[in-house]
Simulated assay, not measured.
Amino acid sequence: MIRVVLADDEAMVRAGIAAILGSDPGIEVAAQAGTGREAVDQVARHRPDIAVLDIQMPELDGLTAAAEIKRLRPETGVVMLTTFGEDAYIERALSLGANGFLVKSGDPTELIAGIRAVADGAAFLSPRVAKRVIDQLPRSNSGARDRISVLTPRETEVLALLGSGLSNADIAARVHIVEGTVKAHVSAILGRLGVRNRVQAAILAYQAGLVQSLD
């Protein structure tokens, strides 16, 4: 069971998202919050697998709340909710360690897929968000290629699969190794590349030419 804390300052939006998540028998909304401060408190109290945070909230905005949650409980995945056009927040959210980025107006199945992907250890960007991120990246980046040159061939292979959006379990099946070994490779990759999370690693994989898209 994937346990979620959901935070949005609009009660009707919050109720709608909770209903969507509740339609999946494998997801439980453990608590809801209407402010960023409440979100941090609820995460500390319920210790969820995932915190779903609106960007615009009173007391603490979603980005500040995300930073506090990652500091207090790094193992909780953070998924940011955004409305179309808030591109300025994407880079900051990723730099703070957000594991996923979803558009509120997206398909409900995308929301569930994103929660499941982050719970499984993968990064998840809404296709609309991913396209906007990718459109801002250089198609060829020698600096990125230099950075990944420190990786072993196996780590480079894992990074390419990670950048394609695969979970640890999917990567393990693809390269015929156990999931624990994949986790060890991912941890080593993040450390060697000096990135904080899988989303940042996936973007670097794209910049280095290892993958064609982050969808």
Rank of each mutant, 00 (worst) to 15 (best):
A160I: 01
L111M: 14
D170T: 08
R192F: 14
G16I: 03
I112N: 02
I189N: 05
D49Y: 08
G194N: 02
E155H: 11
S105T: 13
V199A: 15
L137V: 02
G100Q: 05
E28C: 12
L137A: 04
S140E: 14
N197Q: 10
F124M: 05
K183R: 14
P108L: 11
E155Y: 07
R128A: 15
L111D: 11
A172K: 05
A172N: 09
L102C: 02
V186K: 01
V129N: 00
P138A: 11
D107T: 07
L159E: 06
G100W: 01
F124E: 02
I20L: 04
A160L: 01
V186L: 03
A67T: 07
S213V: 09
R45I: 12
H176N: 09
A33F: 02
F101Y: 15
A66I: 00
G194T: 05
D87A: 10
I203E: 15
E157T: 13
P138D: 08
A33H: 01
A98Q: 07
F84D: 03
R116I: 04
L60P: 08
H46C: 05
Y206Q: 03
L111G: 09
L193Q: 09
D120G: 15
D9T: 08
R71N: 03
L137P: 00
L214V: 13
I148L: 12
G163W: 01
L21F: 00
E155N: 06
E91D: 12
A93Q: 00
R139M: 15
I134L: 07
T181L: 15
V182L: 06
Q136S: 15
S167P: 05
G97H: 03
L161S: 06
R154Q: 11
V4I: 10
R192I: 11
L94K: 07
S187V: 10
T35H: 08
E86W: 01
G114V: 05
T181F: 12
V199Q: 06
I177N: 06
M1Q: 12
R132K: 15
S149F: 01
N99M: 06
I148T: 11
S164F: 00
S95M: 07
L21K: 00
R37Q: 13
F101I: 11
M12C: 04
R154M: 15
Q212V: 13
A117Y: 09
P25C: 02
G194I: 04
I55T: 00
G62Q: 00
